[in-house]
Amino acid sequence: MRVVAAMSGGVDSAVAAARVLDAGHEVVGVHLALSRSAATLRDSARGCCTIEDAGDARRVADRLGIPFYVWDLAERFERDVVDDFVAEYAAGRTPNPCLRCNESIKFAALLDRAVALGFDAVATGHYAQVVDGPDGRELHRAVDPAKDQSYVLGVLDAEQLARSFFPLGDTTKDGVRAEAAERGFAVARKPDSHDICFIPDGDTRGFLARRLGERPGELVDAVSGEVVGEHAGAHGFTVGQRRGLGIERSRLDGDPRYVVEVDAPANRVLVGTADLLGVDVVAGEHLRWCGPAPAGEVSVGAQLRAHGTEVPATARVAGEGVEVRLAERVRGVAPGQSVVLYDGSRVVGSATITGTGRAA
């Protein structure tokens, strides 16, 4: 097969490309330029797509003896991921940009271009497994639970899975680094990227303030309706947040306060005690199935955050939406996040959360 290996410049994508080559495929390395003004050097473990990263990817490709190209997808990344991120926060929701990137960039724009150029598949350094099942290829969790990335791949459909390779799904992170060192890759000890790649300083509130400006509003007690403080913009808050609320100590009774709702139209942030955060009913839309859509009510595992714990649940699909009932209450679930459904280790599909509640 002819395979495009997406090479970020990190250790994971380097070993993934090498493994696909070892498997006998014809491999071309591709680095995605996703920033319109990429930094020259990486100055922390945050962020990605610097010129340094592109150079690291090229050196790995040279060592493997494979062709290497840089594809400029900065304009589409800005539109589909960054602008979407800002718009979601402005609407009072909390998006996961990694899922949007996988859906719109790595397994749409990249895969579509690769297929148009005559390639058969795309390989990435994600920690997940694709196995052949009775109804086609299935997406499963990685063997290393600490690195499992099946949650952020839950937006892939069956057709995309049929053209995807995740060569690292059967290996631990330590094993990947050891293999990279054995292969002589200079990136063997390179730190992992984390947080949001287009906010390299990690200051999400500051990033949103620069994009959306200040929009002063009220902090309101969710039970009494009393105004307990002010904020510079509802877009700077997310459900479950505790730090940075700016509530005067004289307004508190000793119990910590959390954001329990972001009312974007009214530019209000509702706060309350921890007991108001727990929900066990989740509604979702923008359904994506990694195989056949479930029929009727099915028992599943539900994961609500990239590094969250799977919770036993039932799911019922109704038209364009899904209702997920959790076996236990979970705190800090925000509209805009994704719920990914599992059957054992297999990813069933995902949905974008539109609302939460409590069962009667």
Rank of each mutant, 00 (worst) to 15 (best):
R257F: 09
R141H: 07
S104Y: 03
L270T: 01
V27Y: 03
V152L: 04
I199Q: 13
Y127D: 03
R163D: 11
R358S: 10
L326E: 03
R251I: 00
A222G: 03
V115S: 01
L139A: 04
E138K: 03
F198Q: 13
V131A: 13
F207A: 08
R268C: 04
I199L: 06
L99V: 15
V152R: 02
E230A: 14
H194M: 08
D83N: 13
G301E: 09
L161H: 01
H126P: 11
D72P: 10
E26P: 04
P67F: 11
E297K: 03
D43P: 04
E88T: 05
V152I: 15
V262M: 06
L245N: 05
D221I: 00
P191L: 11
L341C: 10
D157F: 00
A274K: 08
F237H: 02
N102A: 14
A266R: 15
L304Y: 07
H126I: 09
L111Q: 12
V317Q: 11
T356V: 15
A23Y: 07
V227H: 06
A313V: 04
R288K: 09
V339A: 06
G29M: 00
R58F: 07
L270E: 00
R316W: 03
G246V: 08
G236H: 14
F166K: 01
R163N: 12
Y258N: 11
L21A: 14
R257Q: 01
C197R: 14
R305A: 15
G24Y: 06
D170S: 13
D280K: 13
A142D: 11
E230P: 00
A17T: 06
R183F: 09
A114P: 06
E52M: 01
R2K: 15
D343P: 00
P97A: 08
A222Y: 00
D148Q: 09
L110C: 07
G308S: 11
E226W: 00
A315T: 07
A6F: 06
S13A: 07
A302S: 11
P145E: 01
A306V: 12
A121W: 01
Y258G: 07
L32P: 09
D72K: 01
N102E: 03
F107L: 10
V260R: 02
I105M: 14
V340G: 05
R59A: 15
E285T: 15
P312T: 09
R189T: 10
E138T: 00
Q337V: 05
